[in-house]
């Protein structure tokens, strides 16, 4: 393996790889933000909604969580064009990842709220707080601390799942890398490089998450 040869090719390919990396970031950010927003609503509805709402959302989350994310992406890609919704591969992919994220975040939020001991709500009631006040002052702060580590994990899962969009033709980092490989035949070096970039990105996200956790942790 010739290091300088690889570095030369890497430099030559820098624009397309950077563009692919940028695409990866856009896909991941869009899916995480939209998916988490939707997921919070789902989680709240699962915790406080009526029986019918909870049933429908249970089916929604169970279905999405039981389906491999790859199948979700392919389904969104193929099905939507047939039913007349004209989405680009990129949009279909982000939609699939958003739905995927929402089901996970919904479950995380539901679980975190359920984990708060009943005594907390009772104590809040006993000092005369309404449900809204109880939720904002007592439940939400505790739930957020509980949610944080698992949510960071979901975010890294989305970053990793963004690679699957390469299969439906979205030129994110992995597909960009494959295109470079097809030109240079340096598959070992470039797959390793791509793997390293993803590892670094997720590692940084993990570290950022842990820093936030430390900041908001309650002294014991």
């Amino acid at each position: 393996m010739d290091l300088s040869f690889f570095l030369d090719n890497l430099w030559n390919a820098r624009m397309s790889l950077l563009s692919g990396f940028g695409k990866t970031l856009v896909i991941s950010l869009a899916s995480v933000i939209l998916g988490s927003g939707l997921g919070v609503l789902v989680g709240l509805a699962l915790s406080y909604g009526n029986l019918a709402t909870r049933f429908v959302l249970r089916v929604y989350t169970d279905f999405l969580r039981g389906t491999p994310v790859f199948v979700l992406i392919l389904a969104c890609f193929y099905v939507l064009s047939v039913v007349g919704v004209d989405l680009s591969a990129f949009q279909a992919g982000v939609l699939a990842l958003t739905l995927f994220c929402s089901s996970h975040v919904g479950e995380i939020v539901r679980g975190a709220l359920a984990a708060i001991p009943k005594g907390q709500t009772e104590a809040a009631k006993s000092i005369g707080l309404t449900f809204g006040q109880t939720f904002a002052s007592v439940l939400l702060p505790q739930a957020l601390r509980q949610i944080l580590p698992t949510w960071v994990n979901t975010a890294t899962e989305i970053v990793k799942a963004s690679t699957l969009l390469s299969i439906i033709g979205v030129v994110e980092l992995l597909l960009a890398t494959q295109q470079v490989i097809s030109r240079t035949y340096l598959s070992l070096e470039f797959y390793f490089f791509a793997g390293f970039v993803y590892w670094l990105l997720n590692f940084l996200i993990e570290q950022a998450g842990r820093a936030v956790e430390r900041r908001v942790s309650i002294p014991q």
């Binding site: 890294t156 970053v159 990793k160 799942a161 963004s162 690679t163 699957l164 390469s166 992995l174 494959q178 490989i181 598959s187 070992l188 797959y191 390793f192 791509a194 793997g195 993803y198 590892w199 990105l201 997720n202 590692f203 993990e206």
Partner: peptide, 14 residues
Amino acid sequence: NTPILVLILFTYFA
């Protein structure tokens, strides 16, 4: 931290 698809492709092609 590495996407499994990258691992799959690496193992098979690289």
